[in-house]
Design a binder for these strands. Structure first.
Length: 303
DNA sequence: AACGACCCCAACCGCCGTTAA
DNA sequence: GTTAACGGCGGTTGGGGTCGT
């Protein structure tokens, strides 16, 4: 994998320099060179950095390698249930704003979030025979997938709390509350437990905004089950809250844009309990999406 | 064991906005 | 006002790994 190749898009390099630029996977030596140079000189001015460090890479390549792999604090591995819930919710609101979404997932990069979406979420949409931006798939996520994630988060945190109670005498003082999205403290009350999953995947619409008085029994069931969940979380849930626009993203139609969202539900639940229990950090999850898959829930709903 | 299909993810590509000369 | 350099972002791809036959 040592092929040398020019990179026409790279600016400020001569043809000779471009001809010597390396592409492809980074070697251990290159990583060490880049990490060492950044440690000593800081980030930024990537083209200059690449030359000064003796890396035969473009500045862009160096920047990408640093941000996605070498930067301290970069988390790798499977997304936790909380992270998955945040991704789903934030994507509802912002669409493919990967960098913005990743900004709310400490240690995660936009590339990782993007890959997760494309490999996991879009795969499920494909399996269901619908587009990932379709109303149907969004309904499935919002009414089946996300409640399950919340249930999982609750179950994990409850188990953790039980362990903490048994060791309460040794518990350290609680850390100060962190910003909502960076606080991965889990809900240990009944928020998640009340987030009953919808019972039917066949409903064509499960969002509050579209549940009319003529809604099907399924939809009525969904409405009656989802609303108390949000209300109990104090999230100001409104059935008028979300509407899907043509791009598949949601937009707030009243009040704060975070009002009534899944992520806020998670965040508020986390904050509410920040002083009441020992709570896991982001790094303690380690779950893949194997703990629960859309395949499983889909089969459960159909059977 | 060999092969092909599929999956996942690191890295690349192209575009756009910002900034400084 | 213009332009080049640069950084950032979202889309795309290629190759290694895994799984099934």
């Amino acid at each position: 994998m040592e092929a040398m190749c020019g990179w026409p898009s790279s600016a400020s390099v001569s043809e000779d320099e471009a001809a010597e630029l390396r592409r492809g996977p980074w070697t251990v030596d290159e990583d060490a060179l880049l990490a060492g140079y950044v440690a000593g000189h800081g980030e930024g001015r990537w083209n200059e950095l690449a030359r000064a460090a003796g890396l035969r890479r473009t500045g862009k390549s160096c920047r990408l390698r640093w941000l996605n792999y070498l930067r301290p604090g970069v988390r790798r591995g499977d997304f936790t249930a909380r992270e998955q819930l945040l991704i789903l919710d934030l994507h509802f609101r912002w669409g493919n704003r990967w960098s913005k979404i990743a900004g709310h997932l400490p240690g995660r990069t936009d590339n990782e979030v993007k890959n997760y979406w494309r490999t996991r979420v879009q795969k499920h949409a494909k399996q269901l025979g619908c587009d990932v931006g379709s109303r149907r798939f969004q309904d499935v996520m919002r009414c089946l997938w996300m409640p399950r994630l919340l249930e999982r988060i609750y179950a994990e945190s409850a188990a953790t709390a039980a362990v903490d109670v048994s060791h309460s005498s040794a518990s350290p003082p609680h850390a100060p509350a962190q910003p909502a999205y960076q606080n991965d403290a889990a809900p240990v009350n009944d928020y998640a437990r009340r987030a009953e999953p919808c019972r039917s995947p066949n409903t064509s619409c499960v969002t509050g905004s579209s549940l009319s008085s003529e809604a099907s029994p399924d939809a009525q069931f969904l409405k009656s089950n989802s609303r108390p969940t949000m209300a109990s979380a104090g999230a100001g849930w409104s059935t008028e809250h979300c509407q899907y626009d043509s791009t598949g993203a949601t937009s707030a139609t009243s009040g704060d844009m975070f009002d009534g969202s899944w992520s806020e539900l998670l965040a508020r639940a986390s904050n509410d309990d920040a002083d009441s229990a020992g709570l896991p950090d982001f790094g303690l999850g380690g779950n893949g999406d194997n703990f629960w898959s859309l395949d499983d829930i889909w089969l459960q709903q159909l059977c």
